[in-house]
């Protein structure tokens, strides 16, 4: 992630400042940043430490927590097939769904970038699903994926195909969730579109002179120039996908046979239905580490495939 260098540090106008001024500035700075600093300590650091402690206890909210060391983690990692099931399906959802979403977003953005008419109309329509929240989407698609009278299966029946039980069949349910996530490719489309407009047109003009075709230009210019944005979309998308909760909670309740028991749903169940706060905290920490490790892996891999234009010039 690139942050624009703060203009303040080297700016000459600062030099005339006296130490008194600078102290006043520092005090105001800390004061004005204090809502975030306090919020960070109270709502992030404190809870994280407390949660780490809780993850090493057994606690049902009603009797005092009992220290059990790493037992929760042992149980989760070596003795809880349900945890691995939810880890598995959450990972599949993220690592199949998000790349497809990003690819679709890139294709749509490329098409929209072809000096077409009604650009703002198409852009709005494609982005609209991203405005609507998870609960609403869940309700819509629960009806559309219905086995008997769902829209998809009705349409399939018209052409003589008996559709699967989308949300009721353990093999299909994750497919349904991935299809549904593609419906929301609009936000990645929008980010891509903004970035596409930043690609210098000279590159395409030069390619035209060399007689390059549309596909060649797409794969040799557009994709390499877009890798930073693709990377950004991937990281954000995967972090979000690993935390999916509303969709399975409302649409399937994790079923059938735990086939859509996403990690956060499993966490929620343990915490707020089984009242196993310690165990749930351990799940939260494993989820956190999982997200951290995956993000680091993607960031590391990015060195091989992400092209930063500024990188040549050095920092």
């Amino acid at each position: 992630m690139r942050t624009d260098a703060a203009p303040s540090l080297a700016a000459p106008w600062r030099k005339r400042r006296t130490t008194h001024y600078r102290r006043a500035e520092a005090i105001t700075g800390v004061l004005m940043a204090s809502p975030w600093i306090i919020g960070f300590l109270v709502f992030v650091v404190g809870p994280m430490i407390y949660s780490l402690y809780l993850s090493m206890t057994r606690w049902d909210l009603f009797t005092p927590p009992r220290w059990i060391g790493l037992e929760n983690y042992q149980q989760l990692l070596f003795n809880d097939p349900t945890f691995f099931q939810s880890l598995k399906i959450t990972t599949i959802y993220a690592f199949v769904g998000v790349p497809l979403q990003v690819a679709l977003g890139l294709v749509l953005a490329t098409l929209l970038n072809q000096k077409i008419r009604f650009l703002s109309f198409f852009r709005s329509v494609y982005y609209l699903p991203s405005v609507i929240g998870g609960i609403s989407v869940a309700i819509m698609f629960r009806w559309i994926f219905g086995t008997q009278f769902g829209l998809i299966n009705s349409a399939l029946r018209v052409i003589g195909i008996e559709g699967p039980s989308w949300l009721g069949d353990p093999n299909w349910v994750i497919v349904s969730f991935i299809l549904m996530s593609l419906w929301g490719s609009g936000s990645s489309m929008l980010i891509n579109l903004g970035a596409l407009q930043n690609i210098p047109t000279e590159l395409y003009e030069a390619a035209d002179v060399d007689g390059a075709g549309t596909l060649a230009k797409f794969f040799r210019i557009t994709i390499p120039m877009m890798t930073p944005v693709i990377f950004f979309n991937m990281v954000i998308g995967i972090i979000h996908a690993l935390q999916e909760f509303v969709l399975p909670f409302v649409m399937t309740g994790g079923g059938p046979a735990d086939a859509s028991l996403f990690l956060v749903l499993y966490l929620y169940r343990n915490a707020f239905q089984f009242f196993q706060m310690g165990y749930a905290s351990a799940i939260a920490w494993l989820l956190f580490f999982y997200i951290l490790v995956l993000t680091l892996l993607i960031v590391r891999s990015s060195r091989a495939w992400v092209y930063y234009e500024g990188a040549i010039r050095g920092r």
């Binding site: 404190g46 809870p47 994280m48 407390y50 949660s51 972090i239 909760f245 989820l287 956190f288």
Partner: peptide, 14 residues
């Protein structure tokens, strides 16, 4: 980048 879910339990308790 930090998932809210990591802190949801202690926040709830708070």
């Amino acid at each position: 980048m930090l998932p809210d879910q990591v802190t949801i339990i202690p926040t709830f308790i708070l």
